[in-house]
Design a protein around this nucleic acid. Structure first.
Lengths: 126, 126
DNA sequence: ATGCAACCTGGAGCGCGCACCAGGTCAAGC
DNA sequence: GCTTGACCTGGTGCGCGCTCCAGGTTGCAT
């Protein structure tokens, strides 16, 4: 079973080394295995977890909820709660998307309006 | 021409009174008309501007860019620049939406996986 | 042996986008 | 005329999510 030092874990997960330590302190990531000298050794499982955490973060889940997920993930008795959390979050993301699409339509409207104005100005000046 | 006090402008725009003052200080909103005693009187034009600023904010445009737009909007010679800014932002929003959709697909995958696991556990326990 | 880079901990600092506060002014109803 | 509440300015504080720093250890390469 392969392990990774902090630098490689950071590179593979896309989180900075500081963020990895921060997540561990905050209980988002379960305590990472250490060498006898105290250095972290991230496992493939840790990286998989980080990969999913990145998905959650990128969709705007706040740290507090991330911690909740991290805590739940330490026991495999909590799959229903984790499922519920993910479903809930997915619904939130769906709404975010819908909202962004509405707003983007407004941006496009405004852009179209500007283009009209500019066309008008051009044809006047011609 | 109707005008609105700070409280009503806040209510209509959805920004807080503090935020309205902040935006004005920061040059995002052009200087708002005042009564002889120095109290702000927001015009319909101001509210229209705020409404659009809200659209920009809600789609994640940073304050710095908002200021840029606000500055441009003070002169009507700058419509091409404003158009460009809006088009650029619209493209960014489009990418945000695409990214959120990708991530949401991952969430749904994960949720499906959890549901499978739980179904399995249920049928075992039955 | 020694240099040097990667790692460790605890804690302070930071950038963003407001929110809040003190201390004062103004306007409208009683 | 006096209270009350909305408003003013200038400045400070805050929550989030990291990011950076000091001061010390470890381990590999030469």
């Amino acid at each position: 079973m392969t392990t990774y030092g902090p630098a490689e874990a950071a590179e593979r997960s896309g989180f900075s080394i500081d963020t990895l330590r921060y997540y561990e302190r905050e209980g988002i990531l379960p305590p990472v295995a250490r060498t006898s000298a105290g250095r972290r050794q991230y496992s493939d499982g840790d990286l998989a977890m980080l990969d999913f955490l990145r998905c959650l973060r990128d969709t705007g889940m706040p740290i507090e909820r991330l911690r909740r997920y991290g805590e739940l993930a330490r026991s495999d008795e909590t799959m229903p709660e984790r499922l519920a959390l993910i479903e809930e979050h997915s619904a939130i993301v769906e709404q975010q998307i819908a909202e962004l699409e509405r707003q983007r339509a407004r941006l496009e409207e405004k852009a179209a309006w500007y283009r009209e104005q500019l066309d008008g100005a051009d044809s006047q000046s011609a």
